[in-house]
């Protein structure tokens, strides 16, 4: 039974990170924008949903909707002034924006739900949706279903966008600025839209994560999380959604399976932990070396 629960937990996390990597893939893979501050949207989504549900006592779904809107709004705010930056400048600027968001929630401890909450105290007791109706032993399965639903929704919507006219213009911008410009498309406007859509979906992932852990604090949103999501989409194959999902699963499995492998190795725990991280790092490098376009290549179409 325990094994099953563990598997369910693993899949819930995979779904949450799956939404993250789909949304990053939309911005980076399809829109060609190297966003290294994706965790900012994750963070804002998590906090928005938490605060809406706990302070305004709205339903979980409204909280998630709020997360969707708030992180989309934030994406709009940061992409307006920075939309003219070159890729590498943009990458580091977004990395900085991600850290500023984290520092904001770390230092502004009035954003809280009571005594000993907010800031580094974190926010405890975030309600799980429909927990009173569903018995505890089935609950993880229900939540798995819920996250899967949101993942499917994200996949469906983004896939529609990518294959539609919007996605075609985006890909054209990614390949070359001049062509869409000559067709009268406003590149900057398209970039802002891409950021907003991707950011908004990342917000959903944040909400889903914290309603499961029932706890959130700013240390959930260190820059490392963004790097991991990047590894996911690169391994799976940047530019297509199926690749992003497979990459998510693989990086997740890499993190989990190494925990189990180590149980059979007679090495001291200290060294083992280092070796585990080394092998994760090396595997990312190896995948990048031998599968430069990722596991699933982007389907290039001629129009």
């Amino acid at each position: 039974m325990g094994v099953l629960y563990f598997f369910v937990y693993l899949m819930i996390m995979a779904n949450v990170y799956g939404i993250l990597s789909l949304s990053l893939n939309f911005q980076a893979g399809v829109g060609g924008m190297s966003n290294f501050g994706h965790v900012a949207f994750f963070c804002i989504g998590a906090y928005t949903s938490t605060l809406l549900v706990m302070l305004c006592h709205v339903h979980f779904l409204v909280g998630i909707l709020g997360a969707f809107i708030a992180s989309g709004l934030f994406a709009f705010l940061i992409s307006i002034p920075t939309r003219r930056l070159k890729a590498d400048y943009w990458a580091i600027t977004t990395l900085g924006a991600g850290e500023i968001v984290r520092l904001f929630f770390l230092n502004e401890s009035w954003i809280s739900t009571g005594h000993y909450s907010g800031g580094p105290f974190g926010i405890r007791g975030i309600p799980r949706p429909w927990e009173s109706i569903i018995p505890g032993n089935i609950y993880p399965f229900f939540y798995l279903f819920l996250t899967l639903l949101f993942l499917g929704l994200t996949y469906f919507i983004l896939q529609r966008l990518i294959n539609g006219p919007f996605g075609r213009v985006l890909k054209a911008i990614r390949e070359d600025d001049d062509l869409p410009l000559s067709l009268g498309k406003n590149i900057h406007e398209f970039r802002v839209k891409t950021m907003v859509i991707g950011g908004a979906f990342a917000g959903i992932a944040g909400g889903l994560l914290v309603h499961y852990t029932t706890y959130v604090d700013p240390f959930f949103f260190m820059p490392m999380e963004t790097f991991i999501v990047w590894a996911m989409i690169m391994v799976g194959g940047i530019g297509n959604n199926r690749g992003a999902l497979i990459g998510t699963l693989i990086i997740q499995l890499l993190y989990y399976s190494t925990r189990f492998l180590k149980d059979y190795l007679p090495i001291e725990a200290q060294l083992l932990a280092s070796l585990r991280m080394i092998s994760i790092g090396i595997l990312i490098v190896v995948v990048m070396l031998f599968l430069q376009e990722g596991l699933v290549k982007e389907k290039k179409r001629l129009y």
Partner: peptide, 27 residues
């Protein structure tokens, strides 16, 4: 159809083997 890289599939299934290994380990 998507072109799936051979190496990728190998890697993917290797991970699957690893996970089934640890599932067995519980027993």
């Amino acid at each position: 159809m998507k072109q799936t890289n051979f190496f990728g599939l190998v890697l993917f299934f290797a991970s699957l083997v690893i996970i089934s290994l640890f599932v067995a380990s519980g027993a």
